[in-house]
Lab assay of single mutants.
Amino acid sequence: MEVRTIKVFTTVDNINLHTQVVDMSMTYGQQFGPTYLDGADVTKIKPHNSHEGKTFYVLPNDDTLRVEAFEYYHTTDPSFLGRYMSALNHTKKWKYPQVNGLTSIKWADNNCYLATALLTLQQIELKFNPPALQDAYYRARAGEAANFCALILAYCNKTVGELGDVRETMSYLFQHANLDSCKRVLNVVCKTCGQQQTTLKGVEAVMYMGTLSYEQFKKGVQIPCTCGKQATKYLVQQESPFVMMSAPPAQYELKHGTFTCASEYTGNYQCGHYKHITSKETLYCIDGALLTKSSEYKGPITDVFYKENSYTTTIK
């Protein structure tokens, strides 16, 4: 009895394709271990004539594949690729409408935090270190965002349907971005203890939790000093293409032309909904596939993004 075979390709990165001759009487799992086709788990399936010449994702289970996976995804987590594939199996079914010149995501599976993050990423200057993220990001900007969303979920250790947080998501993504040249110098002034300067680099240099107003941050924000008295913390120097200011959701007025974009969060910790506000020729609110415009805006804002380049204080 002759062994019926077909020729397929296996890959971990969709760049390096490895030619395989597979036995049609055995499952993919018996031949390769966990195997995925377009995100779908085909591990328990036997090869079919229609699979001839198709590319299958496999887990990096030998040295060659491990090197290829690390170079593309910059992670050695053995569960990463499987999590990416199972997320992709959902995100490829989502709709990605162009809204006001940006790629958004039609609401499904509690994905409003991903839509808000995706919209924000198209408006701030950011370059990702893992080629996987950078490639998928370019495709997302062009309207094909399924891979990018699935990668975000995998890097953030999230599953489809789980509630997510924009600030946490951005923080994970910033860790995989090139923020080497970003720098922030802060000064804390206390009447009792004097003053202390701190220099922050990388992710810490672009994120701040405690106030939404970048102007206020430049002037000074009140913080408790270690001595128990009130101290003032203010920005001395900022070198970065953008800054992200966050605070627990509270009524906040966004003035046209003073910011790049913002995240609105309605609801409580267990259950809520994100919308995205962007400042173009007027203010726009993007909620999944829905767009509304207004000249002014007041609502429960939790993150505001500002364009920056270089700032030095005039406070002496």
Rank of each mutant, 00 (worst) to 15 (best):
C225A: 05
Q196Y: 10
Q222A: 11
E144L: 07
Y284S: 08
I152V: 12
S246K: 02
G53A: 11
Y72S: 11
K275P: 05
H90W: 06
P60H: 07
L114S: 00
Y96E: 03
A177T: 15
M209D: 12
E239G: 03
S25A: 11
Q197T: 13
T266N: 08
M85I: 08
L17I: 08
L200C: 13
P241H: 03
E68H: 06
D109P: 00
C193V: 06
T198N: 10
L153V: 09
K233N: 13
V206F: 05
L235R: 01
L291Q: 12
I223K: 07
V166K: 01
T116W: 03
H176W: 09
I152D: 00
D41C: 08
D165T: 15
N147D: 05
P248I: 15
T19H: 10
C156F: 02
Y155E: 01
N178G: 07
T64V: 15
V12Y: 08
N129Y: 13
I15T: 08
L88G: 01
H276P: 07
L118A: 04
Q195H: 14
A250P: 02
P249C: 09
Y265G: 05
D109A: 10
P60Q: 04
S279P: 06
G53F: 11
F174H: 01
L59G: 09
M24V: 13
K307W: 06
L88M: 04
V203Y: 09
V206R: 02
V21R: 12
F70G: 08
Y73N: 05
A69T: 07
D287M: 05
S295N: 13
E144Y: 12
E52W: 12
T292C: 12
T103A: 03
R4P: 12
Q196H: 05
Y306K: 04
D303S: 09
G194Y: 02
K229I: 11
K307E: 14
N111C: 00
Y155N: 06
F148N: 00
D109G: 03
Q31F: 15
V203S: 12
W107H: 15
T313F: 10
F148P: 00
P241L: 05
F70I: 09
I315R: 13
F217Y: 08
R83M: 03
P34L: 07
P47V: 03
A136Y: 03
Y274Q: 03
K46Y: 09
Q122M: 02
V221S: 06
Q270T: 15
Y137H: 03
S25D: 15
Y172D: 06
Q196M: 07
F259C: 00
P47K: 01
K219G: 09
G267S: 13
D13A: 03
V304R: 04
D23T: 15
E125F: 07
N14Q: 08
E2Y: 11
Q230H: 11
I301V: 11
V12L: 06
F174Y: 06
Y274R: 06
T314Q: 13
Q196D: 09
A177D: 00
L173D: 03
K298C: 13
G39T: 06
D303P: 00
D41S: 10
T55F: 03
K54V: 11
R4N: 09
F9S: 07
P34H: 11
S213M: 08
A142G: 09
T211N: 07
D62L: 03
K201Q: 08
K201C: 10
M209S: 15
W94N: 01
C261Q: 04
S50A: 10
V42D: 00
V160D: 00
D180K: 09
T192W: 08
R141A: 09
S310I: 13
T211Y: 03
V206W: 02
N16M: 01
C193L: 04
S246C: 08
Y57R: 03
D41V: 08
L173V: 13
M207E: 07
Y84M: 04
T282L: 10
Q270K: 13
M209C: 12
F70Q: 09
F9C: 09
A247P: 00
K7Q: 12
T120P: 03
G53C: 09
N16A: 07
V160A: 08
F32T: 15
L81C: 08
P300M: 15
I124H: 05
G267L: 15
A140V: 14
C225Q: 03
M207P: 10
Q98R: 10
R4T: 14
A132L: 02
G39H: 06
C225H: 14
A262Y: 03
L291A: 14
T5G: 13
C285L: 15
G299V: 04
L121A: 15
G194S: 03
D135S: 08
C149V: 15
A154P: 03
G272C: 07
C190E: 04
S181Q: 11
E215D: 10
Y72M: 13
Y306W: 04
M24F: 11
N89E: 01
Y73P: 00
T266W: 13
K92F: 02
Q230S: 15
S294W: 11
I152S: 00
F242S: 01
S294H: 15
T226A: 11
A108N: 05
T43L: 03
Y73D: 03
P131A: 05
C225N: 06
A146F: 01
T282Y: 10
Q195R: 09
E52L: 10
K293C: 13
T192L: 10
E308Q: 11
